[in-house]
Design a protein around this nucleic acid. Structure first.
Length: 844
RNA sequence: GGGCGCAUAGCUCAGUUGGUUAGAGCGCUGCCUUCACACGGCAGAGGUCCACAGUUCGAGUCUGUGUGCGCCCACCA
C-alpha cells in the first residue's frame, strides 16, 4: 500500500471550483465575437455541408418543443463541422402571412382596411383595445414589421442561449427584400413557363379572415350538425325526400344526384324536381360519388356546400348559383334561376344573414311551407376548417393564382431521391402526393405578404383586363404593385380608365418558404454561392409539415433545377407534456417556458434531454431528464478538473500500460460507433454510447488509475488526457457549453472547430479490453463486499481471491497493482477456474 | 374508410443480423460525511417483453390475426 502522494498542482487555467453557472452567456458571446460558426464561402460544394434550416413561424409561441427540434439540427451541424466540413447553417424567420396578421391584431388591436389613408401619427394604444381599430395598409404593414422584429429578437435570444451554431450573417426573413425578390422572381419564371396561372374557380374560403386557404392548411373537425329532411316535389307532384345538413344552401341547389345503380331513383334520372320554398326546377342526375347509404341516398348539389359539390358541379357541368358571400353571409341578391315570386320573397328573408342565422330562418320558413318533414335529426360530422380558423370553411368562387402540380409520378420520383430519416416518413409524402386534388392555390387575400409582381390594364370603360398581364421586369423585383408602377404607365393612371390596376393579393407564405434553399443560397443574384450550397445536404423538419414545406420545396426545386433540393431529410417528432397531451402554448410563466427551464437546468441539460428524441419519435417533456443532463455536465466538469490536475504529458504515445491501452482500445470502439451513428443520423445512439463509456471511465478506469496517476506516471497521465480529449469532442455536439469550458482550460481554439476523434487517433496500439474489464469486475466485487458489510469504500481489504480462466487471470496480472491500490487490497491471489468469481475478505 | 408508427421494470426508453440468466437512466430501498464531484458515490429490489396463432432445435426479435394508444390522410349530402 503506497503512502498518499501529494497531488501535483494543476494547470493554472483549471478552476478550483468549476461551475456551470453563466456558461451560456460566456460562450455564446465568445463564439459570436470569434466568429466560431461563420461560414467560409471560399469552400467548394464537396467541402460544404448545407442545411436548409426551417424558418420558425415567429408569430407562434415559443415553447420547449422548439428547443428540442432545433437541437437535433444543431447536432448534425456540429458533427459535420467537426468532421471538417464547412457547415452552411443559416437561420430564417418566417414572418409573413396570415398568422402574423392575427398576432398583430391581438397584440396591437389593429386590423387592415386598405381603403383608409395613411396616418403618419398613428400609434397603437397599449393595452390594445378590445375591438380592433381599422388602419390603413401602410400603417398596418409598419406595425406588423415592428412586431415581427420584436418576436424575432426573442427567437434569436433563445437560439443563442441554446447554443445553436448558426451563422447569423446568413439570416433571412420571409417578408424581407431578399425573400420577396426570390419569391417574385421564382413566380415570374413559373408564369413564363405556364406552370403558374390565374383562374376563377371555387376556392376554400375562411369567412373570418376573408381569404382563400390551400388544401394543405385544412383540418377536419367533428362538430354537431343535423339532418334536415327536405321535401322536393317530383313532376307528378309526389314528394322526394332529400336529407341535408345545410338547408341554408337550398337556394344554391343546382341539381340533385343519386348513384347510377340506385334502383330507387333510377326512374327519376333525367327528370326534373322542384325545390321547396324557392320553387326552382333542378335536374335529377347520376354520379358514382353519390352514396346510397347516406341520408336518403339522394343528395342536393349546391354551389357550393362542400368539396364534393365542386366535383359534381365540374363533372356534371352545372351552373353556379352563388348564395354565400366572402364575408360568410347570404348574398343580398338572389342567385340566377330563382325567378318564382314566393321564392324570391323567401330569399329576402335570409339575405344578409350569417350561415347560422340563415339556417334557423330557412328551417322556420320550410316548416311554415311544409317543405321539411319532421324535426332535424342531430348528428356529429366532420367539417373542414382552416387549421387556424374558428368557423367552417365556405367555398366561394374567386380569381386565384395557382401553381400546377407536376405529374404524380414525377413528384414520387423526387421523393425517392431523398434519403428519409426515419425511412417510414417517406410514406407520408407518397400518401400526400397520391391524394392531391387540383392545383396549388398560392393566393391569399391578405396584406402582410409577398405581393404578386403583376398589374392589369384598365380599358377606357374602366374594366380591369384580368387576362392581360403587366409583369414586372426581373431587374425591378421586388415590386409592390400597389405603390410601384408598371412600365409605360404613370402613377396618376392607377385605377383610372385607360390606366392600370395592381394585383391586390399576396402570396401564400408557403409560396415563399418553399424557396428557402434558394433564398438562403443567394439565388438568383449570387449564383456563385448557390453553386456551393445547392442541392443542399439536409432538410431537418417536423413531420406535420411534410405535406406543406417539404412537398412544396420539392416542387419548386423540381421545376427550377430538375433535382431534389437536398439529399437527406431528417424528420423529428413532437414534444408532448408528461400526460401525452399537447404542450400548452402560453408563453411566459408556463412550466414549459424554455428560458425558465434553461435558467434552472442549463442549456446543455435541455440539449441532453432533446438528444434523447430519436428521429421521427415523439418526446415527453421530462424534468427528470433535465436533471440527468445537468448531472452529466457537472460530472464532466469535475472529472476533467481531476484528470487535468495530474499534470501534463504532451506525448500521447507514452500510454503504454496494459490497463491504459485497454481503456483507449474501448474508447476507440466508442468513437467508431458514435461516428457511424451520427453518419446515419442516429445521434441518440452516439450520445448513449459516449455517455455510457464516460461513466465507466469515471467509475472504473479513473478509480483504478488514480493512484498511479498521482505519482505522475507518464502512461496514466497520457491515457487520461487523450481519453478526456476524445470524450470532450464526442460530447461537444450535445453539450457545447460545458465541453467548450473544459476545452478552454487546456487547449487552444474552440472544441467546436476541433476535429472529430478517430479510432486510430485514440488507439495507436492494440490494447486488450479484457484488462480493464476484469479489473473493473474485481473492483466492483470489492465495492460490493464493502457495501454489503456496510463499510466505507475506503475500508481495507485483507484478501481477494480471483478465480478465472487463464486469459482472465493474465489480464488481471497486467493491472495487479492498479487493482490493489484502488481496492485497498493487502493480498491479491488468483486461482484457475471456468468462470470469473471473486472472493473478498475484509480486514477487521 | 385508408395509411404509418408505437406497445419491454412504477416512469422514460435501449435491445443491431432470431441464440445462455432481457438491459440503461429515473424513481424506490439500503449503505458510504470518500482526500475530482453530496448538483456526489456504491449497491439492492423490481419484468408472464399487449394477446392469440404460426415458422423454428430455439422468438422480446420473423409471419399472420386481434386489441389498445398516437399521428397522417379521406368526397363531410
Amino acid at each position: 500500500m503506497s503512502e498518499p502522494v501529494e497531488r501535483p498542482t494543476g494547470s493554472a487555467a483549471v478552476p478550483e471550483k468549476p461551475s456551470l453557472e453563466g456558461l451560456e452567456t460566456k460562450w455564446r458571446d465568445r463564439w459570436e465575437t470569434d466568429g466560431t460558426y461563420g461560414f467560409d464561402r471560399t469552400k467548394t460544394r464537396d467541402q460544404i455541408y448545407a442545411i436548409d434550416t426551417p424558418p420558425p413561424t415567429v408569430s407562434g409561441a415559443l415553447h420547449i418543443g422548439h428547443c428540442a427540434s432545433y437541437t437535433h439540427k444543431d447536432l448534425m451541424a456540429r458533427f459535420w463541422r467537426m468532421r471538417g466540413k464547412e457547415v452552411f447553417y443559416p437561420m430564417g424567420w418566417d414572418d409573413n402571412g396570415l398568422n402574423v396578421e392575427r398576432r398583430v391584431q391581438l397584440m396591437r388591436g389593429v386590423l387592415c382596411d386598405p381603403s383608409l389613408p395613411y396616418d403618419p401619427d398613428f400609434t397603437p394604444s397599449d393595452p390594445p383595445p378590445k375591438r380592433p381599430i381599422p388602419v390603413s395598409r401602410p400603417n398596418f404593414m409598419q406595425i406588423c414589421a415592428e412586431v415581427v422584429e420584436m418576436l424575432e429578437e426573442k427567437y434569436h435570444e433563445l437560439w443563442s442561449t441554446m447554443g445553436l451554431s448558426v451563422d447569423w450573417a446568413q439570416s433571412y426573413t420571409t417578408i424581407g427584400a431578399k425573400a420577396r425578390r426570390v419569391s417574385q422572381y421564382g413566380f415570374v419564371r413559373l408564369l413564363e413557363r405556364d406552370l403558374a396561372y390565374r383562374t376563377e374557380a371555387p376556392t376554400l374560403w375562411d369567412v373570418d379572415m376573408k381569404t382563400a386557404v390551400a388544401q394543405a392548411e385544412l383540418e377536419d373537425r367533428t362538430i354537431p350538425g343535423a339532418y334536415h329532411r327536405l321535401v322536393f316535389r317530383r313532376a307528378d307532384g309526389e314528394p322526394l325526400y332529400i336529407e341535408t345538413t345545410r338547408p341554408e344552401l337550398l337556394a344554391a341547389c343546382v341539381a340533385v344526384v343519386a348513384h347510377p345503380d340506385d334502383e330507387r331513383y333510377k326512374p327519376l334520372m333525367g327528370t326534373e324536381v322542384t325545390t321547396p320554398l324557392f320553387n326552382v326546377r333542378v335536374p335529377v342526375l347520376a354520379h358514382e360519388l353519390a352514396d346510397p347509404e347516406k341520408g336518403s341516398g339522394i343528395a342536393m348539389i349546391c354551389t357550393f356546400g362542400d368539396t364534393t359539390d365542386v366535383i359534381w358541379w365540374r363533372d356534371l357541368a352545372l351552373p353556379v348559383r352563388t348564395v354565400v358571400e366572402k364575408d360568410g353571409r347570404v348574398a343580398t341578391m338572389p342567385p340566377a334561376g330563382l325567378e318564382d315570386g314566393d321564392g324570391r320573397a323567401a330569399y329576402s328573408e335570409i339575405a344578409g344573414l350569417n350561415m347560422k342565422q340563415a339556417q334557423k330562418r330557412v328551417v322556420e320558413l320550410l316548416q311554415a311551407a311544409g317543405g321539411i318533414e319532421g324535426e332535424p335529426r342531430p348528428i356529429e360530422h366532420p367539417v373542414k376548417f382552416w387549421e387556424n380558423g374558428n368557423r367552417p370553411l365556405e367555398i366561394v368562387t374567386n380569381r386565384q393564382w395557382y401553381i400546377r402540380y407536376p405529374p404524380t409520378d414525377e413528384m414520387l420520383a423526387r421523393g425517392r431521391e431523398v434519403r428519409w430519416h426515419p425511412e417510414f416518413m417517406h410514406v407520408r409524402y407518397d400518401n400526400w402526393v397520391n391524394g392531391l386534388v387540383g392545383d396549388w392555390n398560392i393566393t391569399r387575400q391578405r396584406y402582410f405578404g409577398v405581393p404578386f409582381p403583376i398589374w392589369y390594364p384598365i380599358d377606357e370603360d374602366g374594366n380591369v383586363l384580368h387576362d392581360r398581364l403587366l409583369i414586372a421586369r426581373d431587374d425591378q423585383l421586388p415590386v409592390d404593385p400597389s405603390t410601384d408602377v408598371p412600365d409605360g404607365y404613370a402613377q396618376e393612371q392607377r385605377d383610372k380608365p385607360g390606366g392600370f390596376a395592381g394585383d391586390p393579393d399576396v402570396m401564400d407564405t408557403w409560396a415563399t418558404s418553399s424557396l428557402t434553399p434558394q433564398i438562403a443560397g443567394g439565388w438568383p443574384d449570387d449564383l456563385d454561392l448557390f453553386a456551393r450550397v445547392f442541392p443542399m445536404d439536409l432538410r431537418p423538419q417536423a413531420h406535420d409539415i411534410i405535406r406543406t414545406w417539404l412537398f412544396y420545396t420539392v416542387i419548386r426545386s423540381h421545376y427550377e433545377f430538375d433535382t431534389a433540393p437536398w439529399s437527406d431529410a431528417l424528420i423529428s417528432g413532437f414534444v408532448q407534456d408528461p400526460d401525452r397531451k399537447k404542450l400548452s402554448k402560453s408563453a411566459g410563466n408556463s412550466p414549459d417556458d424554455p428560458m425558465a427551464i434553461i435558467g434552472e437546468f442549463g442549456a446543455d441539460a435541455v440539449r441532453y434531454w432533446a438528444s434523447g428524441e430519436r428521429p421521427g419519435m415523439d418526446l415527453a417533456l421530462d424534468r427528470n431528464q433535465f436533471k440527468v443532463g445537468r448531472r452529466l455536465a457537472t460530472k464532466i466538469l469535475n472529472a476533467s478538473r481531476f484528470v487535468l490536475g495530474f499534470g501534463e504529458q504532451p506525448d500521447a504515445a507514452a500510454a503504454s500500460a496494459p490497463l491504459d491501452l485497454a481503456m483507449l482500445g474501448l474508447l476507440a470502439e466508442v468513437v467508431d460507433d458514435a461516428t457511424k451513428a451520427f453518419e446515419e443520423y442516429e445521434y441518440t445512439r452516439a450520445l448513449e454510447r459516449t455517455e455510457s463509456f464516460f461513466w465507466s471511465f469515471c467509475d472504473d478506469y479513473l478509480e483504478l488509475v488514480k493512484a498511479r496517476a498521482y505519482t505522475g506516471d507518464a502512461s496514466a497521465v497520457a491515457a487520461l488526457r487523450l481519453g478526456l480529449s476524445a470524450l470532450l469532442r464526442l460530447f461537444a455536439p450535445f453539450l457545447p457549453f460545458v465541453t467548450e469550458e473544459v476545452w478552454s482550460w487546456w487547449q487552444d481554439g474552440s472544441v467546436h472547430r476541433s476535429l472529430w476523434p478517430t479510432p486510430g487517433e485514440v488507439a495507436a496500439d492494440d490494447g486488450d479490453p479484457l484488462v480493464l474489464e476484469v479489473a473493473a469486475e474485481v473492483l466492483g466485487q470489492v465495492r460490493k463486499a464493502k457495501t454489503t458489510a456496510k463499510k466505507s469504500l475506503r475500508a481495507d481489504v485483507a484478501l481477494v481471491i480471483v478465480h478465472g480462466r487463464p486469459e482472465q487471470l493474465a489480464a488481471l496480472e497486467a493491472a495487479r497493482s492498479d487493482v490493489r491500490e484502488a481496492g485497498r487490497i493487502a493480498e491479491l491471489r488468483t486461482e484457475p477456474a471456468d468462470e470469473l468469481t471473486v472472493v473478498v475478505t475484509l480486514s477487521e
